[in-house]
Design a protein around this nucleic acid. Sequence first.
DNA 1: ATTGACAATTTCGTATACGATTTGCAAGGA
DNA 2: TCCTTGCAAATCGTATACGAAATTGTCAAT
Lengths: 211, 211
Amino acid sequence: MSSSAADPIYEDLKCQILSGKLTSGQRLRQDQIAKQFGVSKIPVREALNRLEVDNLVVLERNKGAAVRRYSETEILQLLDIRIALECHALELAIPNMIGSDFRDMRDLLDDYAKCSEISEWSSMNRRFHHMLCEPSGNAQIISMIDDLQAKLGQYLRVLLSQAVGLERPMREHGAILDACERGDSSVAVEALRNHIETTQKEVAAFLRRAE
Amino acid sequence: MSSSAADPIYEDLKCQILSGKLTSGQRLRQDQIAKQFGVSKIPVREALNRLEVDNLVVLERNKGAAVRRYSETEILQLLDIRIALECHALELAIPNMIGSDFRDMRDLLDDYAKCSEISEWSSMNRRFHHMLCEPSGNAQIISMIDDLQAKLGQYLRVLLSQAVGLERPMREHGAILDACERGDSSVAVEALRNHIETTQKEVAAFLRRAE
DNA sequence: ATTGACAATTTCGTATACGATTTGCAAGGA
DNA sequence: TCCTTGCAAATCGTATACGAAATTGTCAAT
């Protein structure tokens, strides 16, 4: 698929940016990164280009790359996009859901409830939302949703561990799944919309407090 | 912003793929393109990488790039994404619309009606849809919508010139705008959804016929 | 004639090298 | 003191060069 030398660099930088190790605005020197990974600048450039597409760095001609983490406004905007995409995908998915889908989601929610590792919550949350949309069969919308989740990951992770707890999301997840199982599309979609909107409000509050 | 040498190559190849000059599956040789544009392979690689992100070419390690135009299914999926994003953006936009927005959109529709150049229809259509979503203030969702429109451009352009004509889209555009002006969010969103869904059905029919 | 292996050629990926642009700093003038 | 001006160092973008992988063509063996 992609060039092998650029892959680990891309992954590593992405991880460092998303986890906050690299602060916003920090400049990324091609030569330095190249030396650090023991390669030349060319695969580094490739990695930086991909990061620019992800909106994680800004490239300026002859000036280099700088970390460009999302602003408060942009995070809320990304959540709006999630509302749009996930609700529509869920609407498309519900008619295609079969017994094993419901079983798998129930199983996941059970594991979710049992799991005490806060670090696991985030990935389980992502998996549940992914499973909700998967039966839509629209591979492109799903990959966009996954991308959004990855970008939002860091903020939501902090949020989950800090403030929210597990009860509310779990209850809402259960309600969404119930409506899906009843085939009640409009209730399920509305529940999902409220679920993400609540998250949106919590993120807004968190960011306001953290500012 | 981006590297200057890669830009024209990217634009040219993108145009050639979207306009159908390069057939699906056709291989793109780095050296050949480089010689053609009078540059080395490195900016060519950069252009190809960007095209891969756009899903317009497929890159395989040590095998090179091949044109990868969207399949019928994928076009319909992209239209589904447009439904999700545009409807949500419109919902966010309506409360923010002011007099000048309505005036601008009316003007555009007037020009649209007067315009006899089929080649202009596509770009006017895009502009109208863009204006509908713009007051949402969500820059990211708008840029995603614009990207989708660009990708779908070729197919919708053919469709407009071949089959559809101007009456139906114009009528629907007018109805959407009326509902916006009344501030009737749910009617406007539903009208927009139906508008895109009709396009979706027409694309499906067109592709079935063309196959 | 078909298949298999091996060699030659093509094509890709990346390191190195070099010109172009920007940046940082220091010296000079207002 | 503060602002320009010019030079040096750092950094970027791309051409060239070379090793690695894949494709193609050839030839012998079945």
